[in-house]
Simulated assay, not measured.
Amino acid sequence: MTTTPTETDVAIIGAGPTGLFAAFQCAMLRLRCVLIDVLPETGGQCTALYPEKPIYDIPACPAVEGAQLIANLEAQIAPFHVPRLLKHRVDSLSGQRGAFTLGMTHGAAAQVSLQAKAVIIAAGAGAFGPNRPPLDGLGAYEDSGAVQYYVRRKAEFENRRIVIAGGGDSALDWALALKDMAARLYLVHRRDRFRGAPESLRQLEEAVSQGLIEKIVPYQLHGLHGTGGALEGVEVIDMDGNTRVLEADVLLPFFGLATDLGPVARWGMDTARATIPVTPSTCETSLPGVFAIGDVASYPGKLKLILQGFSEAAVAAHALYPIVHPEQALHFEYSTSKGVPAA
């Protein structure tokens, strides 16, 4: 679609996997929707941060890489020709349930607006960036690519000596994904206890027993050794002050993301620790007519899994239907019998 839309039924802020599935759910209910994202392409973190990272919590997919998941979601909504406003930052939200105005910045200065009856915020972690380790001279190694916070192409790590630091899912997943191609792979953590799915922990111990991964515990990063941005070794230190230098070509610190809701935090809805509390049965925020799904949404018992975001997308689409069509009752039909509505 070449014409920039000026009004729609549902504005979906965020075109990551949860936002894309929300577009599908809305389209299946014959609700017009527009996908909005500040990035130049759809996919969110799956595209920007880990297109080749295997994801294991998608039903019917034993494993799927981030880029392939996005391609599948794009194929799912292709019949509906959903408009996209990419490289658009939503700066303001005004109006009320059934009649919102979204003020957006496109590019350097262009201001555009969109009228919507309901809003779904699927902004993931909001504005995000890596938590960097406090190491002297870090910038030079970042510039050379010797220190990286995201893995975009696994082939770049073939036959390289890799140090992965961290104790969560990202550290575990990438250690397991790179173990068969690395010349040497170290996994550094401050304690011999990792936060991960039981199956990932089992695979880690198996890889350690096979000599594919060496656990360096309990140690923390302490320094970088090399010249001109070329990494030669990573220095680690234990709780007693003993140090060790690991010969390495690349360091991958996975200490999570620093997140910021950005303008969303100023739209008048309740927020809590860079998330937006919602009512679980509807995914509606404290601002009537505005819904939040995916990692940005919070409620008791919330699981930060993509599959949970998919469920929330369906809940939000059905909950907002009466806002768009107050005069119509929604008669739920299964997709197996309903099929995909004609364009």
Rank of each mutant, 00 (worst) to 15 (best):
L29V: 07
G126S: 11
Q45I: 08
T8W: 01
A329M: 14
L221I: 08
F100T: 04
F128G: 00
P54C: 10
A274S: 13
A297S: 03
I164K: 10
L102Q: 13
L252C: 01
P83L: 05
V151P: 01
D180E: 15
A99C: 13
V147P: 04
R195D: 07
A248C: 12
V315F: 14
E235W: 10
M239C: 11
Q68H: 12
S144Q: 05
P326H: 08
V236E: 01
H318P: 00
V34F: 09
N242R: 15
G339C: 03
K87G: 06
G339K: 07
P51R: 09
V188Y: 11
P51I: 12
L172H: 06
A15W: 03
K87E: 14
V236H: 01
E156R: 14
A67Q: 13
A177S: 14
A109T: 14
A108E: 15
F332D: 05
M104W: 00
E65M: 08
D240L: 10
A292G: 02
P253R: 12
E232A: 07
Q111K: 14
V90R: 02
Y149P: 01
P79R: 02
V163C: 09
G233T: 04
T259I: 02
V236G: 04
P322I: 13
A71T: 02
I70P: 01
V163G: 11
T279S: 12
L93W: 03
A22E: 10
E333Q: 15
V315W: 11
